[in-house]
């Protein structure tokens, strides 16, 4: 119980700080909207082509916008040496990690929920026909992206080129989750249910989330204590 309270305390602190300054949230939402608007000039919104690329487009936007949020996750602890205060407190490293991952998950989900209706308007798409399944895929993938991003945010926090290093390191790791999400999102935005043959992609997403969460929780103490 204390563990869960500590996780929530860290997540609550991160969300409160971010919602007060809106440093990375504004940047990520603006970035997502700009990419969606610019890309809408390149394709004909009425074409079938959009149905085929919708999943890929959305997840590239979410992944790049997510990097803006994930970059700040541990970097915001550097001011006033707050990371030292957290690491020297009795909170387990895994609770600190899960709290930060939960905060990032909420922020990235907000970016996605703002972007989806804008995508629907710009690309003339009824994206919500498989709403619940789409939300499930969205949340499963967002957790996977967040876990990897938060772990590498901790790893790169003391690097001078962390803004460059983080995306370079996380995108290759995210490939299995993004592949699954792109494939499934394309189907769901087209209004089609997921065929039985494609359920393997959902299992892959769930497995990805479990494996990387377990790895991150197990290794984060080594990362945090130099």
């Amino acid at each position: 119980m204390l563990y869960l309270r500590q996780v929530w305390t860290v997540a609550g602190k991160d969300l409160r700080s971010e919602l007060r300054t809106k440093e990375s949230l504004n940047a990520a939402i603006s970035f997502a909207i700009v990419i969606l608007v610019l890309f809408s000039f390149a394709v004909d919104p009425s074409a079938d082509q959009i149905k085929e690329i919708s999943g890929g487009l959305l997840w590239l936007v979410f992944a790049f916008a997510g990097a803006l949020i994930l970059n700040r996750s541990f970097a915001r602890e550097l001011g006033n040496d707050c990371l030292d205060a957290l690491v020297s407190s009795p909170i387990p490293g895994s609770a600190l990690f899960l709290g930060k991952a939960l905060g990032n998950f909420v922020l990235l989900t907000i970016v996605e929920l703002v972007s989806l209706p804008i995508f629907g308007v710009l690309y003339n798409t009824q994206w919500a026909r498989q709403l619940w399944m789409l939300m499930t895929i969205l949340l499963l993938t967002t957790w996977g992206v967040t876990v990897i991003g938060t772990m590498f945010s901790a790893l790169t926090v003391n690097l001078r080129l962390r803004e460059l290093m983080l995306p370079t390191l996380i995108y290759p790791m995210m490939i299995p989750a993004l592949m699954s999400a792109m494939r499934l999102t394309t189907l769901l935005i087209a209004g089609e249910p997921i065929p039985a043959g494609d359920e393997i992609w959902i299992r892959l997403l769930i497995g990805f989330d479990i494996i990387f969460t377990a790895l991150a929780v197990g290794l984060v103490e080594v990362v945090l204590v130099g």
């Binding site: 500590q6 409160r16 007060r20 001011g79 006033n80 040496d81 707050c82 205060a85 957290l86 909170i91």
Partner: peptide
Amino acid sequence: GHGIGVYDELSALENLLLFGRLY
């Protein structure tokens, strides 16, 4: 330590509440 270990964007009370809960 060398840094003060408190968050600029939180109030004094919120900072101490945060660490009180973590401890």
